[in-house]
Design a protein around this nucleic acid. Sequence first.
DNA 1: AGGTTTCGATAAACAGTGTTTATTAAAGTG
DNA 2: CACTTTAATAAACACTGTTTATCGAAACCT
Lengths: 233, 233
Amino acid sequence: MPRSRDNQQHQAFRERILEVARQQMAQHGTAGLGLRAIARELDVTAPALYRYFPTHDDLITALVVEGFTGLAEAVEGAQQANIHLPLRDQLREVLLAYRQWAVDHPIDFQMIYGSPIPGYHAPSEITVPIVIRGFAVIVGLIDGLLQSGQIQRETVYHHIPEPTRQILHERIERDNYPVSDTAMYMGVVGWGQLHGIIMLELFGHLGPVVGNVDAYYRGQVESLLVAMGSDPP
Amino acid sequence: MPRSRDNQQHQAFRERILEVARQQMAQHGTAGLGLRAIARELDVTAPALYRYFPTHDDLITALVVEGFTGLAEAVEGAQQANIHLPLRDQLREVLLAYRQWAVDHPIDFQMIYGSPIPGYHAPSEITVPIVIRGFAVIVGLIDGLLQSGQIQRETVYHHIPEPTRQILHERIERDNYPVSDTAMYMGVVGWGQLHGIIMLELFGHLGPVVGNVDAYYRGQVESLLVAMGSDPP
DNA sequence: AGGTTTCGATAAACAGTGTTTATTAAAGTG
DNA sequence: CACTTTAATAAACACTGTTTATCGAAACCT
């Protein structure tokens, strides 16, 4: 551990490393993420970086945490930016922002939700809490729609498979997160559905099939809201 | 190019390489996919493999093609195994088989639909046709359900966003694939939705949230069928 | 201020990797 | 047999992440 006064410089250089790492990744993909390459860019030898990150994996973990945080902030920001709109519109904008962040930061998104670095797997005790942060916004909005009666039409998503309901309920109680089981369930369902579209898009499988992915995603978000029981606009 | 008589031996050893590669990958993940490691296992030096695969990427591409083919065969097999059941049940079983293959061959699935090998991206002119092969089974079943009036309830998935409909229609005509636009659209929608669940599961993000992924997926398949307009069982 | 500790950075080396080159041995064909 | 083609090799190249021992400089404490 560095001494208290040096801590500032230490953290500053740590930030620079992450900055360069992110930049290199954006340019050359996850393949370009090399200790030596980063060191070169910083006019420093490779072993020097070990003072800041004990191992290569720790660097990646730091980037993953940054990524998750960025996604969570984008989602939260989207809600704040549309806080004056009706809940349904807020939810739509939040879901659009979710994909938009993925499109704008494809590498980060892959690193978060996939594992493009061979042999590396993000420690879930670190990732799970941050995933939930962005997730909470979505579920919160759904819960709001349910409570205010803006989702009243009964749909398939009102019937939760029993084993799933139990786990979801436990999670809600454990995290002390005041939403209904149904809201949580709908959140997970929507999350999964949209996640599939985004992943397919990111790896180039969806574009050739549906052409304009932007329009397609927009349509799917709207369909999701309707499928949940919200009235079409 | 090897001579005509040697061709047999050449192809045989090529197969052995792929076999070992697949095995190594299953054991040590995509990280364990190394030319030298494969060569060691085959009691051969690394450069020898270059007679069979010009480069590392070509080996991977061969594995990807094998993977896609395996998935397509699993899907087709699932339909054949349930050909005596009603169309709706056939579709359910096919969709369950789709995930089951992913669970049984997680590495292959990641390699197919993601890109866990840094710097490598599967050439779409090779992958797209094989993706469609498995996809065709699903769309075919949906089309059958639509034509036989087993999907008659109007749902959101009957209304296709115009830009998407155009592209889908072009694909159908170009590939001379005799299904309706609606069947194609529902196929894509379902594919995307379930793909999200599978990807989240494979990377360990879904398990902690829903507990029993098996039951959850089953429920989602059923929900999907209902959401498409098929009556609940 | 002086002595000691601590931190940052380094060069050198290790064990790997994918890939290229030149060379050798072994088959198949006329 | 001579000749060509193929397979495999050893050696080397340019990398990679990581460890070790070493050195200078700054920070702390007395």
